[in-house]
Design a binder for these strands. Sequence first.
DNA 1: ACGATATAGTTGGACATCGAACTAAAGGAG
DNA 2: CTCCTTTAGTTCGATGTCCAACTATATCGT
Lengths: 159, 159
Amino acid sequence: MRETAVLTKPAKPDASATALYFRLFNEIGIIDQLASTRFERVLPHGLTQAQFTVLNHGVRMGDGWTPARLAAAFQVTKGTFTSTLQKLEAKGFVRVEPDPDDGRSKRVFLTEAGRAARDDALAAAGPVFAEIPSIVDPKEVDAILPVLSRLRAWLDENR
Amino acid sequence: MRETAVLTKPAKPDASATALYFRLFNEIGIIDQLASTRFERVLPHGLTQAQFTVLNHGVRMGDGWTPARLAAAFQVTKGTFTSTLQKLEAKGFVRVEPDPDDGRSKRVFLTEAGRAARDDALAAAGPVFAEIPSIVDPKEVDAILPVLSRLRAWLDENR
DNA sequence: ACGATATAGTTGGACATCGAACTAAAGGAG
DNA sequence: CTCCTTTAGTTCGATGTCCAACTATATCGT
């Protein structure tokens, strides 16, 4: 839950550096929540954002990764990812096979249906993003992304 | 769940504008998740981030708001906020009174314990943010915040 | 080669959140 | 005034997530 700007009483000024970063994370949190909700609403095949992310990753980065590696990549616990994977398997979008080289591991592969579902989702997502360039110019995004990436990378390494 | 940069296979280039915004929201999602986790870990009194946000808002914006107004400000459903409020009430951090002017409404006030808990939480949060200025300069945050605010405002209005 | 330690994956309990159904009170149209 | 619609708040079932405990397999030090 994040606060947004619905209320109108002026906040007391707080010039500390902490407050600045607090605001940054607050804006980021709200954007995440609003954008995620928007995105999930249009996803086809009853896909959750988590499930879509797995399919999208498989297409972009290739498949055959282990669940543990994917869970780390997606910042969720192994338990959470077990659940996500079971949902995707039940929908026929991924295939999970034992790792021939490591008895503890498995390997995750996309099915044709999974690739098709990912394409459907991307197509459905298009209109969701369509209006945004008129609000935030691509050049602004170019300027912002490196900073966010740096912040993300640091948080990722130091968690 | 968001993907991060743990995996090393190169992504196929995708020059469409959609991809750019996709990356933006992806970075934002990861940062939100990592920062939230970090923040929740240090919160005292068993506060959740949602609960802290209510206390913080009360201090910064004054108390006496209705649950409905607060739920809208925090982007959660009324049902969710009912639950959050009950937790805070059980901890003695807020007082909820009937609205004298509207039989349907209530009004939310902070208790002294609630204000103290908020201060505790802020103090605990300090170290969490302490290292970040060395990663992302405050000037960069100043540059980024207006853009994020604009994006947040638009998403908020057009949801 | 063995025992201690680390890693992969699953499971179960707890919890925050959502959406939908519901009650109660307020507001508006006739 | 009366009825219809809107708004405030609660409750309930489902879901996604986390954490901790657990099993099985792999790895490392001696």
